[in-house]
Design a protein around this nucleic acid. Structure first.
Length: 277
DNA sequence: AATGACTCCTGTGCGC
DNA sequence: TGCGCACAGGAGTCAT
């Protein structure tokens, strides 16, 4: 599930149990996820204090004393479970216990997630972070910046927005939702998103992400579900996963064919062909 | 340089 | 109820 709003919600949910705390016990269940894990990762995390938590794109950054940062990517199926059952749930690859006895499990059945330990002073040049585009919720993400990033791109706007070097943090769901709000067809060529279209798309992206974060932060106390899972909340998608259903913005209009599902670059796209041009 | 196909993995939900 | 298949929120690698 993790796109920017979910990653942000998970990161915030990890703050209360982790910030300022020492990792007194760290257990790794395997040597590799998507990539091989750093050598002796568990030992290198043990005894470290968490000084700060941050997010960049879809990455969670836990800044530790000793100038090292734990970099976490949740992939497609990664979750963080607070105070998990004992024995821990299936596919719990990393287990952490803090000095206050709080426990955190990183669970990822598909193992598309990743963990890395990087020099805090060189985060910006880390191979995985270096090429990320602007933060969509930051002031520097403007229509002009987006248009410039899309210039010369012959691919569809859908594919371009999934490219993390264009803008960092969007995934298949929020691209669909943002394009719907901006009334832009996902099939449109990326380099055509200039002027008024870019001026609609940027606030649409910011709004849909902000609303999703707000929903995650307000609907669950401490973002924790009864099973301890962090970051899950009720979504109200307008087009994603709604193929064949009436478009929420043109109800009752005979001309509206309903939400369409097409395939782009091997992934499903949902949109309203009548409103999105 | 940019693009699209393929790939890594397991779980779930659907039709039969 | 069981089985097989399609599909799933990501993104690195490779050929073109």
């Amino acid at each position: 599930m993790p796109e920017l709003p979910e990653v942000e919600t998970v990161m915030r949910g990890l703050c209360p149990p982790l910030l300022g705390q020492v990792l007194v016990r760290v257990t790794l269940a395997r040597q590799a996820l998507r990539f091989r894990l750093p050598e002796r990762l568990a030992q290198r995390l043990t005894g470290r204090r968490v000084l700060g938590m941050a997010r960049r794109g879809k990455y969670i950054l836990a800044r530790l004393d000793g100038n090292e940062t734990l970099l976490v990517h949740l992939g497609m199926s990664g979750r963080m479970i607070l105070d998990p059952s004992d024995p821990p749930p299936a596919h719990a690859h990393l287990l952490i216990e803090t000095g206050l006895g709080r426990r955190i499990a990183f669970v990822d059945p598909r193992r598309f997630g990743s963990l890395d330990l990087v020099d805090s002073r060189a985060e910006a040049t880390h191979p995985r972070l270096r090429r990320l585009g602007p933060e969509p919720l930051g002031d520097r993400f403007t229509p002009a910046v987006l248009s410039a990033a899309l210039a010369g791109r012959a691919s569809t706007i859908k594919a371009a927005l999934l490219d993390q070097t264009v803008v960092a943090g969007l995934g298949n769901i929020y691209v669909a939702e943002a394009l719907f709000r901006a009334r832009i067809s996902p099939r449109r060529q990326a380099h055509g998103i200039v002027g008024r279209r870019a001026a609609r798309l940027v606030p649409a992206i910011k709004d849909v992400l902000s609303e999703a974060i707000a929903a995650g932060g307000s609907s669950l106390r401490d973002h924790v579900q009864p099973n301890g899972e962090l970051g899950y909340f009720q979504h109200a998608w307008r087009v994603y996963g709604r193929a064949g259903m009436p478009c929420p913005d043109c109800p009752g209009r005979p001309a509206c064919p309903g939400i369409a599902r097409i395939e782009q670059a091997g992934r499903s796209t949902f949109y309203c062909p009548r409103l999105q041009r």
